[in-house]
Simulated assay, not measured.
Amino acid sequence: MSWKKSLLDWWGSAGYKKCSEKNRSVLKAAVSLMVVLFVLAIGVRAEKSVVIIDDGKELAVRTYAGTVADALAVKDIVLLNNDEVTPSLDSALVSGMAIRIDRATDVSISVDGRMLPVRTQCRVVGDLLNEAGVAPGPEDEVSPALNSAVTPGMNVVVARVVTKTEEKEAVVNFETEQKYTVNLPQGTTRIAEEGRNGTAQQIWKVKYKDGIEIARQLVSSKMIAPPVNQLVMVGSGLVVSRGGENIRYAEAIDMVASAYTHTGNNTSCGVAPHYGVAAVDPAFIPLWTKLYVEGYGYATALDVGGSIKGNRIDLFFESYNEAMRWGIRNVEVYRID
């Protein structure tokens, strides 16, 4: 005899009729609850047909499981970090249900000297970095780019780039100048003036990538102490033959030569003017320098002139007529001292 029949028999018996009205109400509620629980138990225990779609692969399953989690466990389906299941794992299993598993993508992020393994549902690199709590700076380099698609096995490299302003005191090296002279044997040298390095205050913009300098740009430089160039005298081996005489010289200069005569004044060196006096630009040829001028002969730089600048030279003649005959001409001037 089933429990249903026994319960109905009792319901119509004298025992039920003897219960008070209050007890009858409680009894009815208890019986109704038992019926509901019985129906649910039958539903849970019933075999159900569901489909599990695991990362696009379908698997038909017949099971007595009661929840989505139970159905996955029956098939030994293991979920990893950030895998997503729809419906949720605690959802009651219903026949005809489709259970979708979206597997997270395995990638890695290289940043700040570390490699971080990540499983993610993100579709683009920018979202991946945001999810991982990695914030690129304004100059940082991200490879692949932020808008690139996330692909399995991808390694996203975030290079930290920073530009700093740096000040430093720098050495300014002196240069070496050579000057030929006939006062030394040919080919020998003598330091006439020792060189001395200078210093400058410099401001640089320096770019670093992951702590390593990759670029440097000079913004400004202010000379604190200028360098003093080193002067080296070199024995000249240069010789020119003029009038049957071999003239050893230190330097040959193309110049424009004019002429002048007595003015009633001594030269700027305090010497009375005479043939062989030349007026020069002291910034171009130092005073007291001995010269040989083509077509004129030996001369010494003893005077200056207001219009004598650069490669101009003014040669003294004893008379006005001689000066006029010379006129202005291009000449080769040999510095012999």
Rank of each mutant, 00 (worst) to 15 (best):
K75F: 02
I308H: 01
D90C: 04
V277G: 00
A145P: 01
D112C: 12
I77M: 03
T300Q: 03
G270W: 04
V134I: 15
A14I: 03
R196Y: 03
M115I: 11
L287M: 09
N311D: 11
I212P: 00
G43A: 15
I99T: 05
S95N: 06
V39F: 12
G43M: 06
P138V: 12
T67I: 07
I212T: 10
V157G: 01
K168F: 07
F316W: 02
K17V: 06
S13W: 02
T63M: 02
G126L: 03
A279S: 05
T151G: 06
S49C: 04
V182Q: 01
S20I: 09
G243E: 13
P117F: 13
I214W: 05
H262R: 05
V156E: 00
P117Y: 13
L291M: 08
V94I: 13
A192G: 13
E251M: 12
P273R: 02
P282M: 12
L291S: 02
V36D: 02
L27Y: 03
I77E: 01
A149T: 14
L93S: 01
A278F: 01
D106E: 13
A323Q: 02
Y249K: 06
V68I: 13
Q186I: 14
S32F: 15
A323I: 06
N147R: 14
W11Y: 14
M324Q: 11
S32I: 15
R329L: 03
R24M: 07
R114N: 11
L33Y: 09
T263Y: 03
L238W: 03
I313Y: 00
V331L: 04
W11I: 04
P227V: 08
A250G: 15
E47C: 05
V157I: 14
D210T: 14
T165G: 02
L116E: 08
W288F: 10
D55S: 12
M97F: 07
G243K: 14
R119W: 07
P282T: 13
L287K: 07
E141I: 12
I53G: 00
S108C: 04
Q121G: 15
G43H: 08
N147C: 09
P117E: 13
M233K: 14
D254L: 14
N173F: 06
D90A: 11
E21C: 03
V35H: 05
